[in-house]
Amino acid sequence: MLSKEEIKFEKITAKNLPRESLISPGHRACQGCGEILAMGMVMKAAGPNTIVANATGCMEIVTSPFPETAWRVPWLHVAFENTAAVASGIEAAIQMLYKKQKIKEKPNIIAFAGDGATADIGLQSLSGALERGHNFLYVCLDNEAYMNTGIQRSSSTPYGAMTTTSPPGKKSIGQCTWKKNVAMIAAAHNIPYVATASPGYHLDLMNKVRKALAVDGPAYIQIFSPCPTGWRSKPEQSITLAKLAVQTGVFPLFEVEYGRFKITQKTKELKPVKEYLQLQRRFRHLGEDDIAYIQERVKAEFERLKALASLDA
């Protein structure tokens, strides 16, 4: 759906930053969890008139062990692989109940899922929901492995990373495949809005959420979510990593607005990936050759993204 139309939305700046946290403190996320922080930012941007569907995973576990909930908005957890379908049902019900005047307004509908729930087990359900055109936002909180079950690799785990099922050894480098690009897969559905975001750039993240909620139809945002537990990084460095991933081009920030690609990060001259990799023990087994390979490929992918963005400049 290529269109020159600009998305109209209420912009968030440092001055009017929403303060109301819709996830309460007292949640059980690990120290320095970048995932819950990202989710909290999404919710601040969305506001209280929101219904959340949450996939099984860290965020579901840490926010809802009975009898305590961290949620201050209506929230539904059903299973692991089906959050996009659950959100489809919520959306269809909201549309119909509104049409029949059984409800007075249409709330935002947001599905949260981890990278395993998105890139692996839930990919079909996500694709179905995007293709059907439901008016909802799907947020993939990407911490690059199955952290909730004990750091197993997913198809979103980056090349070279050590996980409990991609261990480095004499015959393996660790994760031997390149990270699946689900944002591009989402974009291939020709939905109104796709973006990547990082909690290191909170205004960018929150405004992308605002845009995603402003469009009529499906939106997909993949958010880089540092995980000190799974990445063997220091809890205090989660935001450092969230910024470095962007600045090195490991996790570039872009958006696809009505089919138009746009790089949204300020850093166009990339920092060396080594600066990012060396802060995480999941990469510590990598040699200089491995890092050089990653560097080369990150650079090549960033160039491709720039080329895509230039098409619509």
């Binding site: 309460s24 403190p25 007292g26 949640h27 059980r28 009898p67 305590e68 909930t69 961290a70």
Partner: peptide, 24 residues
């Protein structure tokens, strides 16, 4: 923890944000 008779439907939690009781 409540007796089964006192559980909300489907064991739902109807006290939004009561995780704030937990002293993390």
């Amino acid at each position: 923890y409540p007796a089964w008779e006192d559980l909300e439907l489907g064991a739902a939690i109807t006290t939004p944000g009561n995780a704030s009781n937990l002293k993390t």
